[in-house]
């Protein structure tokens, strides 16, 4: 058992776990952050997508020992009440069916819009290609990404 410092959603935490423990289980079971979802454990579905130093990352394949030096944001860190532009767009267009993959879809979108404030459909497809939605909400996700981009640009202008 090793001890690690983590910075998650702007707060510092001390956690104890073997160094190769996937960050996802530490977030979920030690820090109580269950927004990042387990979907595959091999970085193939995107349900756990969170943001590490501004980039979309997969906590299910990130060893705890590699997470300590970085600034981690989970979906819980976006806003207190769901009023981040991406969250607002998701609510407005009624994207979620079961909703399980949506925290990951949202975090991939946050990372996309930080890098590209006006993505076209190809940009959206590339950025979200590795986020699986088994309910098939993709057409609404695409529309919600565009709406979130509008909200974000409006807020900045």
């Amino acid at each position: 058992m090793d001890q690690f410092r983590l910075q998650v959603n702007g707060k510092h935490h001390q956690v104890r776990a073997p160094r190769d423990t996937p960050l996802l289980w530490v977030l979920r079971e030690q820090l109580g952050l269950t927004g990042p979802k387990y979907g595959c454990g091999i970085g193939a579905c995107g349900a756990c997508t969170s943001i590490v130093d501004g980039q979309a990352a997969r906590p299910c394949v990130t060893p705890l020992a590699e997470a300590g030096e970085h600034d981690i944001t989970t979906v819980e860190g976006l806003s207190e009440h769901g009023d981040h532009p991406v969250q607002r767009a998701w609510i407005e267009l009624d994207v979620a069916q079961c909703g399980y993959c949506q925290p990951g879809q949202i975090m991939s979108t946050v990372a996309l819009l930080a890098a590209n404030p006006d993505p076209d459909d190809d940009d959206i497809d590339r950025a979200l290609r590795d986020n699986v939605c088994r309910c098939g909400t993709y057409s609404r996700i695409r529309a919600a990404v565009r709406l979130a981009a509008q909200y974000t640009r409006k807020a900045q202008s």
Partner: peptide, 21 residues
């Protein structure tokens, strides 16, 4: 009429509790 999913805000904030949670 149009309605949003009643759990929409919980889902987008990660507060929604599934079996696994």
């Amino acid at each position: 009429r149009h309605a949003h999913r009643v759990d929409a805000r919980d889902i987008v904030t990660g507060r929604a509790r599934y079996g696994i949670d």
